[in-house]
Every structure is written in C-alpha cells, then in structure tokens.
Computed example of a mutant assay.
Amino acid sequence: MSHPIHQANENSPYGDLTREEFYQKHRIKHLESFMLNKRNMKVFTQSWRLVPDPDDHDKGNISPTLRGLVAMVHGYAMDSKWLFELTAIAIAKCGFLVCALDLQGHGLSDGFPGHIPNVECVIEDCIQFFDSIKFENPKLPAFLYGESLGGAIATLICLNQKNEWDGLILNGAMLGISPKFKPAGAWLLPVAAFLAPTWKVAPVKPNASKFYKEEWKRKLAAKNPNRRTSRKPTTATALQFLRLCECIRLRCHELELPLLIVHGEDDRVCDCSSARLVYESAGSHDKTFKSFPGMAHMLIGETEENVELVFGTIFAWLKDRGA
C-alpha cells in the first residue's frame, strides 16, 4: 500500500487538494475534538477510520470490519496534524481505527510552546484519551505507535499499563539521545530547570538533512501552520528527555508485549544503538528490530522507495496482529 506522503508537495500534505477533498478521496471519516485533562487544560484530539465504498457494498451504511485500534503519539516540536496525520490515514486505510492527540504545548493543545515540565502529566493525558477510545471499542485489539519523543512516551504508557495493550510500534523513538544532540553542560540541567524552566536550551543542532533527507519534505515540514516551537527544548523539557531515556533504559526489560522497532542507522538525534538495546532487553517473545542503513531520524522524510520499505514493514506487522 502506498503511503499518502507521495501525494503531497512542498506546500501541502494534501497536494493540490483541500484537506476535505483529500479525506474524501481516501474515504476517511475524520473527527476532531478537545478533551479537558485533569489539570484543566484543553487537549486537542483526532480520530480516523475508513468509511464504506458505495461501489463495493450493496448498502452504503455497511462499515468495513475494523482490525484494531492504533493510538498514535507524535514527536517533539510536531503535532498530530500535517505530516503525522498522513501516517494516521495510511494506518486507517489498513482497516484500523486510529486516534491521536496534541501533546501539552504542541499543536492546538494548551501549554507554553514546546514546554513539557513533567512528562508524567503528558503520559496521563495520553492514557486518559486512549482509554476513552478503548472503552468505546472494547473488542478491538489495541496498539500503540510512537515517533521520536512519542516513542518514548508510548513505551512508558505500556510500562504503566501492563497487559492493556496488544502491541507497540516505535518509529525513530527517543530511547536514547545522540551525544551530538545533547546540550552542552547537560550536568547543569537540574539547576537550570529549577531556576529558569522555560529558558531554551541550545543543543548542537544537526543539519536539517539529518531530519528529512528529501529537501521538499523539509520545506513542507517547515510550513506546518500548527507548529508552535523550534527543536530547541526548554531546560525543564530537556531534563525530562534525559530522565525519560534513563527510565526506559532501566525498565525496558519489563516490556512483554509484541514489539516492532524501526530506526534509521544514520539517525543523529535519537540513538539507533539505544533502540537496539531496548529491543535486546525487552522481555517480549514477539519482537522485531529493523534498522535501515543510511536513513535519518524522520523516516517519512526518506525517498519514496525507502518510505515504502519502512512503512510497508509497519503496515504488514499491524495487519498480521490485528483482528
């Protein structure tokens, strides 16, 4: 199945279509809403599912059979729209009900831009929303999908909700931060986070090509109207990143659910070796690790051939384990 990113251009993920026309073309029912979290903050949420094709059914109201539920968590300085939603559409077209939210301080959710002072609160938001979708669809097998920071958050969700998920997919996950991307003087972060929590850290920033290999995709990502922050995290957020990676390193052996990890070997942001360590340490009997030579951090930013290779692996894994 072809990933919808191939229909985008450098100005819009929907190519020459409007967002509504794009969804209609792919026969996707899309819902948006806001959830009030336990801290009285508004959190933006979305869901996607395939709708009936009148040409394939005698009655237009017959819904395609759902294979399962996929809950998605986006990365830092990203959101659940724009490029991320193209993957949501692709998974929905595989026969899954898909849901996602904008993390605190990202996209349309409340919060200081890009600021995550306590990752446990973000995990709490995800569990609150995902549990509400699972409650409405109790018979569907439920899978978690996370990219970059979202992969680390998805991993912690699984560790906090053992036996409540049927599989975990990690795409370029932040399971360890590359030494080239760590801020200078990282040992001072606890003090800096206490004294100036919203001060922006200045990491050694990789060239933009280390995120998206194809130039037109870099331009497209930069035009995301919902993007509220640069890749420079606040001191409090950077400290949370380091603690999150350390927590996963110490607890990844507790993972026992079906696990798929895909990672670019040329990832200069999130360490590929850390992803391999999580794979080797996980207690899962059903686990797969796929590293891709020459590929960078954002695997959706690769060439068409490479995107099909990576996401074809993900789609096939989901279909094999869905209902």
Rank of each mutant, 00 (worst) to 15 (best):
S230Q: 11
D166W: 13
E164I: 08
L255F: 05
F129A: 13
K182A: 03
A152C: 07
W187I: 14
R218T: 05
L17C: 03
K219P: 04
N11G: 10
K217V: 11
A77R: 08
P258K: 09
D267H: 04
R251W: 01
H297A: 09
G185N: 15
C252W: 00
S209V: 11
K25Y: 03
G105R: 06
L189N: 09
S33C: 07
G312Y: 05
P13A: 06
A154E: 11
F315R: 00
F289H: 14
N160W: 02
P141R: 09
T234A: 06
S63G: 08
M72V: 15
M78P: 03
I261T: 00
C99V: 07
T235P: 08
A275T: 01
C247F: 14
M1A: 15
L69F: 02
D286I: 15
I177H: 06
L250N: 15
K200G: 12
C94K: 15
I300Y: 01
P138M: 02
R39F: 00
T288G: 04
N160F: 01
T288M: 10
W216R: 06
N207W: 10
F135K: 15
D102W: 00
S284P: 12
Y76R: 07
R228M: 01
I314L: 03
S274I: 05
L260M: 06
V201P: 02
M78K: 07
M298R: 00
C158G: 15
F22W: 10
M72N: 05
A152Q: 04
A236K: 12
N306D: 09
T87M: 13
K319N: 12
N37L: 05
N207K: 15
I300K: 08
I62P: 08
G294P: 01
V262T: 06
L69M: 09
S148R: 08
G15S: 03
T303E: 02
P113Q: 01
L239Q: 11
R276Y: 00
P206R: 08
H26N: 04
